[in-house]
Design a protein around this nucleic acid. Sequence first.
DNA 1: GGTTTACTTGAACGATCGCTCAAGCAATAA
DNA 2: TTATTGCTTGAGCGATCGTTCAAGTAAACC
Lengths: 196, 196
Amino acid sequence: MKYDHDDIIEKATTLFWQRGFQAAGMRDIQQALDMRPGSIYARFQSKEGLFKLVVEHYAQNSASRLKQVAEASSPLSALRVFFKNALTGPDEQRYMRQCLLIKSIAELDVIGDIAKKAILESMQTLKEGFKDIVEACVKNDELPVHTPTELAAEWLQNQFVGLRAFALLQDEPSAVLQMIDKVIIDLKTQWPSLSH
Amino acid sequence: MKYDHDDIIEKATTLFWQRGFQAAGMRDIQQALDMRPGSIYARFQSKEGLFKLVVEHYAQNSASRLKQVAEASSPLSALRVFFKNALTGPDEQRYMRQCLLIKSIAELDVIGDIAKKAILESMQTLKEGFKDIVEACVKNDELPVHTPTELAAEWLQNQFVGLRAFALLQDEPSAVLQMIDKVIIDLKTQWPSLSH
DNA sequence: GGTTTACTTGAACGATCGCTCAAGCAATAA
DNA sequence: TTATTGCTTGAGCGATCGTTCAAGTAAACC
């Protein structure tokens, strides 16, 4: 076992995050991991197999960050900081502003079924993470008690998606911060009923 | 001139929208357009050249829809209908829920510079379209006069992006409609100031 | 020491990629 | 009729794709 497993996954994550599933060729992967094709295939069976592990690692990492937010003394302000960190990093980490999962959804039917499943399940996992945050905010009296947590969680996830696309193209950090403020405002205001 | 230009672009749009830039191979394109490679290259120079025209056609079409919304007797309710139509189409047109431009942004650095420029300019065009809608709403007393139109336009575009990703994965139309209602509510409420 | 086991290596396979170009075709001009 | 022009054709180019596999290496167990 010449190569460290976690180290491999992390390097692969960076590559897939930057280039996407299709555009990251096996030869790019071989170079990024400093491994020969045989070694890669012996461990991960296929490019898709490696990608699946990357997605799961990414989701796990994201989920633990969300958990930290939920467990903060002030979940709402921790949420604001979380958004800020994710969306206004330095320029050389600009690729990180895009959510790996959302980027993958754009090429969902080019990715095989195994990784596809991992992506959709990861989306679900993150939604749960957002839900925990909303509930923590309610418990901490930072959000009204009548806040519909399930709906607010999905909404929050959507906001995150929209903001990531925005931040990716936006050069002015203050514009991003303003959008984050709007999210926090809207999170506190009223919610629609089901009626249609 | 055996083939009709608009007809070509429309068929190509469908293909790129469904599959994305990379995944749509030249042989897929040849089949979809019922054209041989030579004919395609004689007209469009390259796959990227064709894609550029597709993007511009898409943006132009979207912009005219947004203009219709802005010119409606009630821009705000027209906006709601616009969102609903874009996000809750029948299942065989599910691919249309994803915004072609956003999908393209996910593979931006795999696309050449010419089409890349077209994509970014199109994003700008659509932002202008959203701005016109917000201003029309204000003029029609459907939104408060102090609404910051520039900010609200960017915000509205973000909402559209987030909702499209949501609608793509969501099977329940009522959940999407609920999110749309939330957008309309938030559009009317307060906006953050610049302070930071 | 010998055998097994787990991992690594890299040349090379068949398939597919975007794209080229000599040749063919039909309509118009001379 | 012949020449020219604009569009179309499709075999096939070189490059790259994901993947395979026989051979090599080194540590572990008997």
